[in-house]
Every structure is written in C-alpha cells, then in structure tokens.
C-alpha cells in the first residue's frame, strides 16, 4: 500500500528577496479515518498522515498536526517569505511513524 503513497509539491523555482511564495503540497494517502466500516461491517482501523513538517534552510516554517477530519489525499497550501536562496524540506508522518519526504530549491534574486 505504501508504494502508492507519493508526496507532491509545487514550489516556484525563483523568487525575489522578501517575496511571499505560495507552496502547494499533496500526499496521495487514503487517510483511513477509523470511522468507516468494511463490507463485513467491521471498523477499518485508523491510519492517517498525522503530521507535516516544513522547514526552509532548516528553520521551521509550518508544522501541521492532522486529525481524521482531513480529506483523503491531504492537500495543504501555505506561504513562506524567502529572504535568501535555500531549500524547503517536507516530511509527512503517518500513524505507523512511516515518513515520506520531499525537497525543493528556491533561487532568490
């Protein structure tokens, strides 16, 4: 199952110093809420991505803690103000402590 889980990010490659850049993220994940029943009427155990951490040049810019009320394939978009060129690092963590990462570079002029 975990083979299907892929993080996707959209980050502008370049920006001006001090610019607010919009970051879009999505991870393909069923976000099993723990509320759903299977065909035999048994509750399907909860398994969600419960955390997204984002840093820019190692400094935190967003930390999201997610509950089962977040939709499948959780999409989040937010902003980062960039003062110098650097790297955005993304880490998603699920209930089994499995993690997925992504990174993107921004060239600041």
């Amino acid at each position: 199952m975990s083979d299907d889980i892929k993080p996707r990010i959209r980050v502008p490659a370049t920006a001006k110093k001090g610019e607010l850049v919009e970051i879009k993220t999505l991870i393909t994940h069923p976000m099993e809420s723990g509320q759903r029943r299977d065909s035999e009427g048994k509750l399907v155990p909860r398994l969600i991505v419960n955390r997204l951490d984002v840093t820019y040049n190692g400094k935190p810019v967003l930390a999201a803690t997610l509950e089962p009320a977040i939709s499948a394939n959780p999409y989040m978009a937010f902003f980062v103000r960039v003062e110098e060129s650097g790297t955005l690092n993304f880490t998603w963590t699920d209930d089994n402590k499995q993690t997925w990462t992504a990174e993107a570079k921004i060239q600041v002029s």
Partner: peptide, 13 residues
Amino acid sequence: ASGKAEVQLRIRM
C-alpha cells in the same frame, strides 16, 4: 519566516 498566516486545507464533513 512563514510570512503570512494562511493555510488552505480540505476537510471531511
């Protein structure tokens, strides 16, 4: 460093 306090998300209702 976030620069703007805004987040877009999708919620189950």
